[in-house]
Design a protein around this nucleic acid. Structure first.
Lengths: 179, 179
DNA sequence: GGTCATGGCTAACGGCGTTAGCTAAGATGC
DNA sequence: GCATCTTAGCTAACGCCGTTAGCCATGACC
């Protein structure tokens, strides 16, 4: 188990404050509200001062993506520990986490993974619980991940019909992928 | 079969030229390159003139999303006609279309569906081939759609490991969902 | 106590979407 | 055939955005 931020040591204290404020802003008001000026405002400083701590806005967003990856990994690990081998519980944890942090989930997900800037091993760690639940079948794990990600983003972006029974679609997909 | 644009009659000729230029710009250079100024440039006019034809940039993007929906529906219908009942061929058509137009696919997909501005019935039409291939099982169709969408967007955004065998993951997922 | 790094600041640049207001050209009505 | 109105362009400008340059106070270090 980690410190929950994954950035202690990698970032200065002030940089972590900035990331925390950025996260609040993003989660409360969406990606359009996450501007360098409003972020600085929330910290009681001016926008250019942010560049003493991060080279550009993208670097802040990468930090947010890393948080999301780390936290979702933790959520999956917790579920796997509580109910070993249950893909249903893993899926529930994934869905719950993503829908609790929709803006963060999309920010972290809808662009290339910044592997170079990520803590070593984080990507594998996030994938491991699902891979184990799939008995080491890499193809099945990837297919299941795609299914879960697809369900979550389609739901977040309101692509399903209003009256769609998403619980039933989840059940049906999981039953097929993990009989 | 339609005219392939779906907008004849709904849009003026000039508006259709603008959408066509916007599409070229988007597909060639990505969403960041799609600005009102560069779009106007490509048409040999100035940015404010675009507002004589569309109320705002979003309206242009909605037109692009409608094109994507229409064309992917056509691709699926063609596949369903050529190889009736084959989910493999449907999936291949979906993947091929999305990967041939990645920026357009993401633009149309990574935001709420503008149902009010869409041609009537288009959403249902796009969903029908898959629903039929699933024997009318709505839950299975939605699960399969989520799987396919997840595979495509994760591939587009480079989220899978470099060496991942995506063909195998597609096969594995489809085999599970449609035994 | 002088030196230097830290972390603020103001002013400004170029690009964005968008609005206001002007105008040339063509269609329309009598 | 002329007046009128609509169309579709234009320039200028506004308020945002990310970002850079350059200045300055504070406090740590030898």
């Amino acid at each position: 188990m980690t410190d929950g931020t994954g950035a202690t040591g990698r970032l200065t204290a002030r940089a972590r404050e900035i990331v925390a404020a950025a996260r609040d802003l993003l989660e409360e008001s969406g990606p359009a509200a996450l501007t360098m000026r409003t972020l600085a405002d929330r910290l009681g400083i001016k926008a250019p001062s942010l560049y003493k701590h991060f080279p550009d806005k993208h670097a802040v967003e990468v930090e947010l993506a890393a948080q999301m990856l780390e936290e979702s990994a933790e959520a999956l690990e917790t579920a796997a520990t509580r109910t070993p081998g249950s893909l249903e519980e893993l899926a529930r944890a994934y869905r719950t986490y993503a829908l609790s942090h929709p803006h963060l989930y999309c920010l972290a997900t809808e662009r290339p993974l910044p592997r170079a800037s990520l803590p070593a091993g984080l990507e594998d760690r996030a994938a491991l619980p699902l891979l184990r639940a799939c008995g080491g079948d890499l193809d099945l794990a990837r297919a299941t991940w795609a299914f879960a990600h697809g369900m979550v983003v389609l739901e977040i972006h309101g692509r399903f019909p209003e009256d769609a029974d998403l619980d039933a679609a989840w059940k049906r997909g999981l039953r097929a992928l993990h009989p």
